[in-house]
């Protein structure tokens, strides 16, 4: 990664300067949900970092905690019921979790920004799209209405919405799914954030549109040298875009690796199961392989390795001892007692 220590003036009094290109550092983050039925341990101590111009993919099933991680970084968890009992989320060295709420609010948009899964419900149905983009400039930069709208048109053109000038006053429901997601992207990148979090940005779209949206995200990331956190359960989406992959299971990171290494030889049985469950069009007549069983109930995560009830390789040690994330090969981390065997299998 490039080393960039130039400050990023954003019009707010606080400036954030990444040290050695390090933008975001998540350390031992825990998130619990206190519900009437008990405490759900959604995230149980995860750590990762993100540098300028880097794309980190966070991969996992529904309920693995990937969206909660994103929302914790953005600071948009509903608290309560969510509680963050321990951990740090540092942006340019400053802990977002202990930051003054007003100062933290000002980071949302100019510093850290987020794209959501379903653009139709994530955009406000009663305001024109141009107004919703322009709102970023008006609120964060105090820009007047017409200037902000000009900026909105420019952004709509940048995310390749045809006839942007004519459609700036149209409402979200008047756009197709792909165009709506482009508008969502325009909102998120409006203030040139250093970190962009995309939470399943293509899940609600059809396949051809998915590819276009991913291409656009990749293009914007390279152009602006953003740190991109791509949250997905779709391994196909990740391969082209991501630099590194972090695999989550039951609120823990179970594997972390460069994308090529991980695809070539996964170091965790769960990752291997995920890779095997990708349908292959070139091999006809084969049964689709799936990981048996269900993800654990987050209120009763099994002792030992949380994946052990579903793991074909599980031994007594897996049911007893929680495997810690450890380096199993240069630049590769895995939380499996038998990681070396998996990687060489």
């Amino acid at each position: 990664m490039t080393t960039d220590t130039t400050t990023r003036p954003k019009g707010s009094e606080v400036t954030y300067t990444p040290q050695d290109g390090l933008l975001l550092e998540v350390e031992d983050l825990h998130v619990e949900f206190h519900t009437p039925d008990g405490v759900a341990n959604a995230i149980n101590g995860i750590s990762f970092s993100l540098h300028q111009g880097e794309c980190l993919a966070i991969l996992g099933e529904s309920g693995s905690g990937k969206s909660v991680t994103a929302q914790a970084i953005m600071g948009i968890l509903d608290m309560p019921p969510a509680v963050i009992p321990q951990g740090h989320i540092r942006y340019c060295g400053q802990d977002l979790l202990t930051m003054d709420p007003e100062q933290r609010r000002k980071t949302r948009g100019p510093e850290v920004s987020m794209i959501f899964q379903d653009a139709l419900s994530s955009l406000n149905p009663v305001f024109p799209v141009g107004w919703q983009i322009a709102e970023m400039f008006r609120v964060h930069r105090g820009m007047n209405k017409s200037d902000a709208l000009q900026q909105a048109v420019a952004l709509m053109e940048r995310v390749q919405i045809p006839g942007a000038r004519d459609r700036v006053k149209a409402y979200p429901h008047q756009f197709s799914g792909g165009m709506r997601q482009r508008i969502m992207i325009a909102v998120a990148i409006a203030l040139d954030p250093a970190v962009l979090i995309a939470d399943e940005p293509t899940t609600a779209l059809d396949v051809t549109v998915q590819a276009q949206i991913m291409a656009l995200l990749q293009e914007l990331q390279e152009e602006r040298q953003m740190g991109l956190i791509l949250i997905t359960h779709d391994l196909g989406v990740v391969a082209d875009v991501a630099d590194r992959i972090a695999v989550m299971y039951a609120g823990r990171l179970v594997e972390k690796a460069d994308v090529a290494d991980l695809y070539a030889a996964p170091a965790h049985p769960y990752t291997r199961g995920l890779l095997e469950s990708i349908p292959r069009l070139d091999q006809k007549g084969q049964k689709l392989s799936a990981i048996g069983g269900l993800p654990p109930n987050l209120m009763r995560i099994p002792p030992g390795c949380p994946f052990n009830p579903r793991c074909r390789m599980a031994q007594d040690v897996c049911r007893r001892d929680l495997p810690l994330l450890r380096e199993v090969a240069p630049g590769r981390l895995s939380a499996c007692h038998f990681a070396e065997e998996v990687i060489n299998a």
Partner: peptide, 13 residues
């Protein structure tokens, strides 16, 4: 709703 979550994520007060 999702759009209020978006509004918070946009850094609005």
């Amino acid at each position: 709703s999702d759009y209020v979550r978006t509004a918070v994520a946009k850094g609005l007060t």
